[in-house]
Design a protein around this nucleic acid. Structure first.
Lengths: 153, 153
DNA sequence: CTTGAAACAGTTGCGGT
DNA sequence: ACCGCAACTGTTTCAAG
């Protein structure tokens, strides 16, 4: 699927990432094509899973979510089923916006959005109650310098 | 602005986050209202900055962006203008998807999306060439367990 | 809040290159 | 085979009650 994506596709993706509310005509004009071919390309990329969810970015502050933590998780007890349980808890918790399994000493990193430090502690307590964790370091974000969902094309 | 957001607004935001391609009628039906009032609420929340960019989520793998790093940055030389320069570099670089200024020992965390480890090294070399950095730790993501732009409402 | 109408955009089929 | 045209259908936008 990767190789099938040509320069025209990338231009379209760029426009969609930037502003998905644009009309087909507008996008077509910008990429130097017209409605139908652009529509067909978009359809194929949706089918192929290149284009996923269409969404709006909300302002966390406006919604009272004023704290953001990056959580570094170390585990040494790799019992059978532990990871499965851990993943299930992360999926369930809406304040966990991202979770990655890492290479190296730190096993996982989480990005957690909450109302305040107190809400983070509640999350943390709930987490360690459900799964045993060897070591946790929480990094508190003071300022979001940059935040984008736009991938480099 | 925060207090003005009521339960109905939150329901609408939930639907928009989940799928911004839905028609107004569909959203109105789901939240138990009708077209015009829903439209007016959305308009107000756009004006108020609660609702930001409308976008599509692209699949990084399909676009050949197979590596994701979290970069922990420590700096001790806080010369005048250093931070400004650092921010400018981060803004300029499209592979930097997120950047936060932190409380504590680690000063910044970055999330960087690139083609492969080689591309990360190129980014790293370019970064330290432009600004002096005391210490850098790169955490390589092996697996994206969870990734969402949907905030908890 | 509801109705409704005018402008606009998405979707599909057809003919041309 | 793909593109662009154009008609049709559905959606957004907004005014009036």
């Amino acid at each position: 699927m990767v190789d099938q994506i040509d320069a025209m596709d990338r231009k379209i993706l760029g426009e969609l990432q930037r502003d998905a509310s644009q009309s087909l005509d507008e996008i077509a004009r910008k990429v130097g094509s017209s409605k139908t071919p652009v529509w067909n390309r978009i359809r194929k990329m949706k089918e192929g899973g290149v284009i996923g969810q269409q969404t709006v970015i909300l302002d966390p502050e406006s919604l009272g979510l004023e704290a953001c933590f990056f959580v570094l998780v170390r585990t040494n007890a790799h019992e059978a089923g532990w990871q499965e349980k851990f993943l299930k808890v992360l999926q369930k918790r809406p304040e966990v916006l991202e979770a990655h399994r890492l290479a190296g000493e730190i096993d996982y990193i989480l990005k957690v959005r909450v109302k305040n430090a107190r809400a983070y502690d509640e999350f943390y307590q709930a987490l360690i109650k459900e799964v045993t964790i060897y070591n946790v370091t929480a990094l508190l974000s003071m300022e979001e310098i940059k935040s984008t969902t736009e991938l480099p094309l």
